[in-house]
């Protein structure tokens, strides 16, 4: 149980690393997803640990929906950026500012 929560935070750490180190828009979306997967484990296990499994699962369902919406928007933005600029590199986009 404890290790589940540790794994959740490990996923958060991997996701944070991705968000800080990566520049590709789609990979940033993937890093966000990793973070939210960790959140999913954390809420389900937390509900479980306090003896309210139904509560934890209910939070988990809501979480899955919410992060899917964020992923969809992120992917749509990535596709648009690529169409307009021919690159997925966030720094290339930034340089346009001039």
């Amino acid at each position: 149980m404890i290790w589940g929560l540790v794994a959740a935070f490990a996923l958060l750490a991997v996701g944070l690393y991705g968000l800080l180190a990566l520049r590709n828009l789609i990979k940033l979306t993937i890093a966000l997803q990793l973070m939210m997967k960790g959140g999913l484990i954390a809420v389900v296990l937390a509900g479980d640990a306090v003896g309210q499994r139904g509560l934890g699962e209910s939070l988990g369902v809501t979480l899955i929906i919410a992060d899917t919406v964020a992923a969809v928007i992120g992917l749509a933005l990535a596709v648009l950026v690529r169409r307009r600029l021919g690159s997925l590199d966030i720094e290339v986009v930034s340089k346009l500012r001039g």
């Binding site: 990566l22 520049r23 789609i26 690529r82 590199d89």
Partner: peptide, 12 residues
């Protein structure tokens, strides 16, 4: 849709 795009080496 966007095609592969390799990750640049220089991180942000």
């Amino acid at each position: 849709m966007v095609g592969e795009d390799s990750e640049p080496h220089q991180p942000v």
